[in-house]
Amino acid sequence: MNIVVLLKMVPDTVEELNVGADGRSLDAEFLRYKLGDPDEHAIEQALLLKEKHGGTVTLVALDAPEVDDVLFTALAKGADRAIKLTGAESPPGTPVLAQAVAACVRGVWNPLPADTLILCGSYAIDDLEGELAPWLATAFEIPLAMVVAGVQIEDGGRKAVVTREFFGGLRGEFELDLPAILGIQSAEKPPRYVPIAKVRAAMKSARIDSQAAELPEPPAGLELGRMAKPEAAGHAQMLEGDPDKVADQIIEVLAQQSLI
């Protein structure tokens, strides 16, 4: 199989996120980037598929701080090739990212081989302008499934049968003709651990292909205004009163958040 995993670095929310002086972007001082959780699962799912059906796993990522570590780690886990797209000054929005990635994929495979499966994280925490997978599905005109939590390959590699998460444990099974693109929510197994020694070995033996990214102008449709941090949670808001009164307040809160 020709498995392509599109990776996206996102700000690490463990570090303090501050809004920069312009009020419209993140302050770079404490910013660190990491791979989003769904992307970790996308890598794992790709490796599981490779182990089961053979083929190659190609990683494509836009350059960002610490992206090399991520790519070498994935190579150490068993991915075959890593492509890094350079040239973006700040993380572009999804439409621009999608076009850069699509151009890269077309540069390698044109047309897409029939047994191609493109995987990426189902969502990213900075997807202000939408998720990556649907943009690419549109660009390549191939079938799409989102929130995927399991992938089977059938018909000798012509068809993918995916399990999608709905809610409360309910899932649905869908079938797609390959080539296709999947937004992975979780892999069938938790992402594997790769020891540091193997990552270091990969840094010595493997290579990351750098390519200049084709970055189009961002579409003009959105105007980003102010960015702000929510008020600090700090301490709980205490609900006072007798049990009945407290119950009413809680019900109010639950209703507000549509939990009941």
Binding site: K34, P190, V194, A197, K198
Partner: peptide, 20 residues
């Protein structure tokens, strides 16, 4: 560990230690 056969909670810790 070299085979990645480590339980989930330990994996999380090792990942934390690697990163932070």
């Amino acid at each position: 560990v070299s085979q990645g056969q480590v339980e989930r909670t330990v994996q999380d810790m090792l990942a934390n230690l690697t990163r932070y």
